[in-house]
Amino acid sequence: MERVEFRQMKDGTREEYLFLDRLEEEFNQGLVDRLLRALRNLENSLSGYQVSRLEHSLQSAARAEADGADEDMIVGALLHDLGDELAPYNHSQLAATIIRPYVRGEVTWIIHHHGLFQKYYYAHYFGENPNERDRYLNHPWYQSCVDFCERYDQASFDPSYPTPSLEHFEPILRRVFSRTPFDSKVIGEEHPLEL
């Protein structure tokens, strides 16, 4: 079989769905390669900063690594702005959706909310509330998100910071994304990803 016969999903046969499942499994084996390409594309993304979006992402991950963060957090830091090009107004949520099946719930929650928490540093310049993040003040991962933004995200626009290459992080990406998706032993406790 080269392709299915059905034109509506409700008309598909077991054989067709098994065939599609095999193709999907093969396609999913290339996920890390697609993520690496998407990260490389950040080199030519949003301008105006002293570093490219790729350099910012690499610096964020390097700072997490230097801080002794685990691989989940390093991957979160590396991919936290991956959604900038396709979802400029909800890039945090897009990045969180990508990592969610593979990392612990805390990291997904942090990445999902980092865009709002980052506003602490600049929202007042636009007449907005820089403390809007405080609506999550009683959330168990509030401080973790504050720390992520302070240590890794907002600090990573420095052209003089010794930043490793993307290839340095490739083995970590491959390990994390080789996990069984949504393995409860990995993702652990999840909290609603409300906006």
Score class of each variant (00 low, 15 high):
S156V: 04
Y120G: 12
F117D: 02
R14K: 12
R63Q: 07
E194I: 15
H113F: 07
L54G: 03
Q8C: 11
D147K: 12
E194F: 14
D70E: 06
H191A: 10
Y122S: 15
P88V: 07
N41M: 14
D84N: 01
V186I: 14
P88H: 12
P159R: 13
R40N: 06
T13Y: 08
S52M: 11
N131C: 04
A77D: 03
S60M: 10
E5M: 09
N44S: 13
E26T: 12
V32H: 12
E128L: 10
D147I: 11
A123N: 14
R37W: 15
M9H: 09
D81A: 06
P192L: 08
N90H: 07
E128P: 00
P140I: 11
L42E: 03
L20H: 06
N90M: 06
F148R: 02
S45M: 05
Q29M: 13
C149H: 00
Q143F: 08
H91M: 08
I111N: 01
G68I: 11
N44W: 08
H91W: 10
R3L: 06
V51D: 00
R174L: 07
Y152N: 05
L54C: 06
Y125G: 08
R135D: 05
V103G: 02
E150L: 08
S60F: 00
K119L: 07
H168T: 10
A38T: 05
L35N: 00
F177P: 00
N44H: 13
G12S: 15
D33G: 13
D153W: 00
F117H: 03
L46V: 11
G48I: 01
P159W: 00
V176I: 15
Y136L: 14
L23W: 15
S184P: 05
P171H: 12
E2S: 13
